[in-house]
Design a protein around this nucleic acid. Structure first.
Lengths: 162, 162
DNA sequence: AGTGAAAACTTTGTACG
DNA sequence: CGTACAAAGTTTTCACT
């Protein structure tokens, strides 16, 4: 179910993924027209890609600033004798952690947070530091951001109005 | 159109965003049932959230390992006299850059890459270094990752099969 | 694995409280 | 800003190639 290495995919699967990547809500019928197939097989291909774990989910990008939230990254350096899976387990239990990455080298892990404000960020980072398995952290606060997936040229937190 | 700070949103908007965040393909009718409204106003609310810039896009999370790709972050430290918008403009022109973040403090920016392999990564990072505005870079290679948005418990690149 | 058509469901528009 | 219902479009399932 979850892919270890490259999967059996033809060029049509790749085009379907390319379309869905930049617009997860694109109708199957429109994808079908674009790749030159009818709707039925495209629906089955998408279902297959989901169950194979190639498609890991469909998410909506929400402007953190609009929701009154802050975005931050924290790099984690672990104590020498700690397995990365320990910090992964902890990260999973912290609801503010939006994404988790195991890193090859230094640091050992990278976490992306969504928090209400700087105090909230401080609380969350301190909670992770207090676990005892963390040798050090470095937190990067995001001022603005963009994502290649989004078609419109938003610039995140510091835009002119309307 | 693009939000500067918190927008006028009621608790129903927030619940709609919460549902779409974890499943961008959830039908409007199902969202309507969950929040206790009929489909029409939910559709109009989503349309409004899109045009206000609160919803910045719908993306599909694709397993990089399954597509035979590598994921990496590069921290950028800029030369002292350089505006962050310069590196943002460069990042936009590099198709391998998936996400861009302006950071408060050190480093100045964070880039997330999708590349075919380590050689490809090296090329892309060197291209950015050669622009002349970069004082230093540090690249973090992702070994495994997860995203809170995905409902299924995928663990990225190093899972047992099926 | 694809097509094409029918059935079920979803989205969108219009009228109205 | 909500509901209700009808029209248009989409997804899914079926028999068939």
């Amino acid at each position: 179910m979850l892919p270890l290495g490259k999967c059996a995919m033809d060029s049509i699967d790749e085009r379907i993924l390319g379309l869905l990547r930049t617009n997860a809500r694109m109708p199957v019928s429109e994808i079908a027209r674009t790749v030159g197939l009818s709707a039925a097989p495209v629906g089955r291909r998408i279902e297959r890609l989901e169950s194979e774990g190639v498609i890991r989910g469909y998410v909506t990008l929400v402007s953190d600033a609009a929701v009154g939230e802050l975005e931050a990254f924290t790099e984690i350096r672990l104590a020498g004798d700690v397995d990365t899976r320990e910090i992964e387990g902890i990260a999973r239990q912290v609801p503010e952690v939006q994404q988790y990455y195991t890193i090859a080298g230094d640091p050992d892990a990278l976490l992306r947070f969504r928090v209400r404000n700087v105090e909230h960020l401080q609380q969350v980072v301190n909670a992770i530091r207090r676990t005892g398995i963390v040798a050090g952290t470095k937190t990067l606060i995001v001022m603005s951001s963009w994502d290649r997936a989004q078609p419109f040229p938003s610039e995140g937190a510091h835009d002119k109005h309307t």
